[in-house]
Amino acid sequence: MNFELNEEQREFQHIVHDFVAKELKPMARETDETGEFNWTAVKKMGPVGLLGLEVPEEYGGAAVDAVSAAIAIEELGWGCGSTALAISAHNGLALGPIVKYGNDTQKAQWLPPLATGKGKLGCLSLTEPGAGSDLQGGVQTTAVKEGDSWIIDGTKMWMTNASISDVMVVLCRTDRADGSRSLSHIIVPTETPGINVGPAEKKMGLKGSPTHAVTFDEVRVPLENLLGEEGWGLQQTLATLDSGRVGIGALAVGLGQAAYETAVQYAHERETFGKPIAHHQAVQWMLADAATELQAARLMVYWAASLKGAGKKYTKEAAMAKLFATEVSERVCRNAIQIHGGYGYSSEFEVERMYRDTRLMTIGEGTSEIQRLVIARHILNL
């Protein structure tokens, strides 16, 4: 398959790159140090199409193809990991399910403000204190029918965008039976009474992307807020995570690319033993490996995205791309610190932040271990 970008994709990449270079990258350090979400830049993303990447134009979205969407997240990651994660989650995890499973009324209500920047962001609510990788058996948040409403009770964790969102797509147990048809997605406006968003988690990296525990105490929403079919929440979640893994892979490539570029520049500037360290073979090999692995990771991400865009099965390919890209990014960021020597361990240099930011990528939206399980089950037909 040919992965050469077409003219439209290259032009979109150019537009996004210029936007990120101007609005995100110069603020990345401040975003990390203050832990404040970069609303100034995000409010400018609507006209660029970054807040509704794959949302149909009739709902205010950019309606770009899946590869272009991956390109956008990669460029965002190159500029600021924190902002990139929030926008990736908004597009892939919140808007994605509404676009794919929502009815016309739900799409008309939620997509336009979320895609154009006239509202806040969206988020997906899956993980719980006892339910990370094991969603089918671990989800304890319940949604019970009462009259014309769902009554939701439970606790969620690690909700990206919870405090900066207008709407949550919440995975709930709608059937007490512990089966594959026991879970459902329900659209919950964030301002609904009974929702308590806890303090932002204190994290190793990605500090400008707010993450929270959220409790639901008799939260009442209309029955028509059911997203998709009742009992199909697990299947919808798995499909959503396939798409999200392409996004995380792209974000990781962007972070790795930024670290690699910074290391190349430093290798030309820093001198030891009377010459720039770029002339030392040990440094050259680390940079050569970084360039090679990043290109391979990028192609794997584009490959998975192209399958998604073509409507083909891509669960295995998404897992492969996410696994490889995130582990490559961590390795590249680690070696970028090594090339910087002692300076790389200082927060005065960008590679320290990039390393902390990319550390989540092998954990979020399915750990590397889960990706290997997914891949193994597909190649072994288990």
Rank of each mutant, 00 (worst) to 15 (best):
F3H: 11
L5G: 04
N6A: 07
N6M: 04
E7K: 13
H14M: 09
H17S: 14
A21H: 08
M27W: 12
E33Q: 14
T34G: 10
F37L: 09
N38S: 08
A41K: 08
K44M: 07
E57I: 10
A62Y: 05
A62D: 10
V67Y: 02
E74Q: 14
S82Q: 03
I87V: 14
G92R: 10
V99K: 07
T105D: 15
Q109D: 09
L111P: 08
K118R: 13
G119K: 04
L124W: 08
P129L: 09
G132N: 14
L135M: 12
K156Y: 09
W158H: 12
T160N: 04
S165P: 00
C172Q: 04
R173S: 02
I187F: 07
I187S: 00
P189I: 03
T190N: 05
M204Q: 10
M204N: 14
P210D: 03
T211C: 12
L226T: 14
G233I: 06
L234R: 11
T240Q: 05
G244R: 07
A250H: 03
A252E: 05
A258K: 13
Y260V: 00
G274C: 04
A278S: 15
H280P: 00
H280D: 12
A282K: 10
M286D: 09
A290P: 08
R298D: 09
L299V: 07
G311I: 01
V328C: 12
E330K: 13
R331K: 15
N335S: 10
A336G: 15
I337W: 00
I337M: 14
G344L: 06
G344Q: 08
S347E: 14
S347R: 11
S347V: 07
F349I: 02
E350F: 07
E352F: 12
R353S: 03
R353E: 04
R356A: 11
E365R: 05
T367A: 13
A376V: 05
